[in-house]
Amino acid sequence: MEITVNINGTDHTADVEPRLLLVDHIRTGAGLTGTHIGCDTTSCGVCTVLVDGTPVKSCTMLAVQADGRSVTTVEGLKTADGLHPVQQAFSDEHGLQCGFCTPAMMLVGAALIDENPAPSDDEVRWAISGNLCRCTGYMNIVKAIQSAAAAAASSNGDS
């Protein structure tokens, strides 16, 4: 089947088998390897991408389902203005160790602060509860997302 998926602002057209998972289309088809795979049962969330702005597990969606839709991956977080506030905050607050879960965590964080400009500790933990991290114990991930929210709020206030 021929599909066109807009990934990070660029249309990718490809002829794919219906069974091709979106995550494989992103990683192999588009060559964007920041989206990872960590399980077989839709449990770990390291494959998270935003489809039309909503975080979903790309290992549990077919590439054909994304035909005509737009997908944001970690590679699409940075803009011409520089790093996204969550990216900066993850580094500043030591929100990552091995970095395997990090792209997913940042995307969920970015989607959260779009909706909730000042999430509480509990709200962040709830929002990232579909995403596992084996290294950080989540403490600094929560801190990073909250500090990104604060940074985003203050820069929105400036403009």
Partner: peptide, 26 residues
């Protein structure tokens, strides 16, 4: 039928389900 796919696709990945056709209702 394929709705959210959050039960069907995991079963298909494990090959517990092997439907010959999916009708996507999304």
């Amino acid at each position: 039928f394929l709705a959210g796919g959050q039960s069907l696709l995991p079963m298909m990945k494990l090959r517990f389900a092997t439907p010959s056709k999916l009708v996507d209702i999304n």
